[in-house]
Amino acid sequence: MSEIQNPPVDRGQIERALARHKDRMKLYLSHCMHCTLCAESCFMYMSRDKDPQYMPSYKVINSVGVLYRKGPGIGRDDLQKMKGIVWRNCVLCTRCYCPVGVDVPAMIAFARGVLRSQGIHPDFDEQGAMESWL
């Protein structure tokens, strides 16, 4: 892929995007008990043979969790992987339930915003774009 189609991550911009709700997101991440009780509340999980990658907790840990773990130094390939998690694996129907009270939809929406700040978002007009997400 050419440099124009795959530009490097804009460190300053992603840093600003990550700082916006840092305290709230980090609180949520630290209080997710990894108990998986949220799984059944996700219709994607239920309709995909209970594949763990559709669990709400899996989706936030592997999007927002990775964003904060890697920070502004995150690679574009990581962000591309995240695109599939937060747009294809989640439709943001906001029906997920967390016993502790972690606001999963807010986290997914936040991850989408961070990805958009890097120009990464689904392009529904592009032929075959949907299949190439993951």
Partner: peptide, 21 residues
């Protein structure tokens, strides 16, 4: 200071925060 903080935050999230649940 750790994940055990849900002992406190469970009540803050589930009782004080506005939300469906």
């Amino acid at each position: 200071f750790t994940r055990l903080g849900h002992a406190l935050f469970f009540f803050l999230y589930r009782f004080l925060l506005d939300g469906e649940y």
